[in-house]
Design a protein around this nucleic acid. Structure first.
Lengths: 179, 179
DNA sequence: GCAGCAATGTAGCGATCGCTACAATAACAG
DNA sequence: CTGTTATTGTAGCGATCGCTACATTGCTGC
């Protein structure tokens, strides 16, 4: 690979890590650069502008979350819905995925207020997640695609409860879903 | 009421409106002050600091969302769960509540990354919503409180789908929930 | 009407922001 | 080796940030 591209990729990875650790929305060039062992000057040089850097980071993070999901759970159907939700929530409460979740909610916040880049990113991540879910929908579901999206909506609800520190209130949620 | 308190309240209301219109996280003193017809100087004078101002605004918004909810739907049980979810989502997709939702997701984002003020606020808003729901849980539910929290989790899931522009994918969600 | 406090305007501080101009250096082509 | 281009450092610009010092105005109690 082009040495330049390689350098760019290395910076991208480091910046993404910085954002996972310190948040997306008020990540500014100088701190990101410091973490990546470079200067704001060079981030602009490689990515054009902060906005393009963020956009690139978001694409990179989409790929990373997909990889992490695939790596975390095999592509085979869950036993039933309650099991599926419980397993997935256990996974999402893992430290690794908590980092993703924090950024995910930042993306959602920007998407909700209409910023197009973030809307697009949010949609892309949702589709990635839905695809991942579709491969794992419990057997016996008539429409796997629809089941995946329904499952996704339920999971997002629990993610919100977690973020608000109310996970215990919805603790019985997984079981009650199948009623 | 104290004339000073009255002025403070008027500013508070105006600032809250500004935040509903332009977002919470990067609302800075000078623009907020301009909207409220005053100066950054006076916002600090009345509220002490930007941080205290935001905290006060968040309490104020909690009250406002509670009022708006109470005003929007009478305190009587929904016919059944699907009806409940459909009605509430229709309400939350109203322009008035979209404004709240955008700020709500900003609060969640900050809460998820551990900022204590926002965690507290998120919890408070959740409780307000759960209380509101509890009064409207369909008849026949054995544990109204638990049913309210489950409903809340489902609704939050749909709010996230909306924010990500995927509401249509989960459109059948309301009906499928009762399966 | 005058003293004293409350309310407000003006100006600016120091920090940080994204970004750029310019110069120096490194790497490579001929 | 030399000339050219790619990469990087240094310095700083103009804008904005939260906040404050200081002065002025307005109001109120005596």
């Amino acid at each position: 690979m082009d040495a330049r591209q390689e350098k760019r990729n290395q910076l991208l990875y480091a910046v993404a890590d910085h954002i996972l650790d310190h948040g997306l929305l008020d990540a500014s060039l100088r701190p990101m650069a410091r973490t990546a062992g470079t200067s704001d000057r060079m981030l602009i040089y490689h990515f054009g502008s902060r906005e393009q850097l963020i956009e690139t980071v978001l694409e990179h993070l989409t790929d990373r979350v997909k990889e992490s999901l695939d790596l975390a759970l095999p592509a085979m159907p869950f036993k039933d819905r309650p099991t599926a939700i419980a397993s997935i929530m256990n996974l999402l409460r893992t430290p690794e995925f908590r980092r993703f979740n924090a950024v995910w909610l930042e993306i959602l916040a920007k998407a909700a207020s209409g910023k197009e880049t973030y809307r697009k990113t949010a949609r892309r991540i949702m589709v990635v997640f839905a695809d991942w879910l579709e491969q794992r929908v419990p057997k016996g579901e008539e429409d796997r695609r629809a089941a995946a999206w329904t499952l996704l909506a339920q999971i997002e609800g629990l993610v919100v409860m977690d973020a608000a520190g109310q996970s215990e209130r919805a603790f019985g949620f997984e079981e009650q879903q199948s009623i």
